[in-house]
Amino acid sequence: MTFALDIGFAAIHLALVLFWPLVLVGIVRRVKARLACRRGLPLLQELTDLLKLFRKGEVIPDTATWVFRLAPWGTWAASALVALMVPTFSWSVPLGAQADFILVIYLLGSSRFLRNLAALDTATAFAGLAASRESFVAALSEPAMVLSLWCAGWVAGTSRIPEMVWRFSEKAAAELSPVHPLILVALVIVAIAENARVPFDDPTTHLELTMIHEAALLEYSGPGLALMQWGAGLHLGLSLALIANLFFPIGLAAPAELGTVPLGLFSFMARTSVLAALLGVLESTMARLRFFRITDWLALSGAAAVLAVIRLVTVGR
């Protein structure tokens, strides 16, 4: 019976991590459209787009090698694997025992690494530029991410993300450590940067020379592009899930308790939707940063993480 429940939980989790991000992308776009006095696209437009792309043919540059073909699958798989480790509606996840934060960070890192390799593989000027810029952003955001998750782990007394979520959800808000807001600031900035959103990057631009993330995908078409876009969607979804569950762990379903599932689902969807809407508001009210000013924001994120570390080392949780 528990086994069947576990399978059921895993199935819900899987459906949620794979498809809910597509709705979140739709929510961000819808909020931006509404703030611009437009009606906006249907919430499931991203899904429609992906289905269309999967049915299309693919054009592969003459200069590309197997790296170019492998990258969409590799990046998608890495993001999907991480998605199995980050809690959604319940703190229990299919790969809970393996969900060490270092593994999570570097699986995401390898996904980015593959994408950059593929960009260089096409030997086009824009993709090369994109790879260099994305590495620049990643090199600055990664330390902040490692440090802040390390702090979260210290406070929770574990290095596994689902356990962190569980520990935090057990505590009342008042008991939470003062390092929490610091980690929140650091992680939010990192999440915006790594998902290539305004003010770091503009996902809607058509100007190749300003692109960071999109320029790496310029040579992709059809199913390859679909996987890349879906992978980016997964990344956004799990970033929002991580923030929602680490800092606002409300109404999480307990493992193997069927009755708590509806509330867990509702709470998760509501919390991530609110975060997506906030992202939409941020994107509407702010211009992009000048490329070399990206460092200011990432330095802020790094500083917040370092402060959290200092607090933990000197005072304790």
């Binding site: 703030l35 611009a36 006095c37 503009d202 631009t205």
Partner: peptide, 16 residues
């Protein structure tokens, strides 16, 4: 100009 820097407010209202 607003559109180029990803400033959605300016881009949409000026084009309106």
């Amino acid at each position: 100009l607003c559109g180029d820097i990803g400033y959605a407010f300016g881009a949409s209202h000026f084009s309106r």
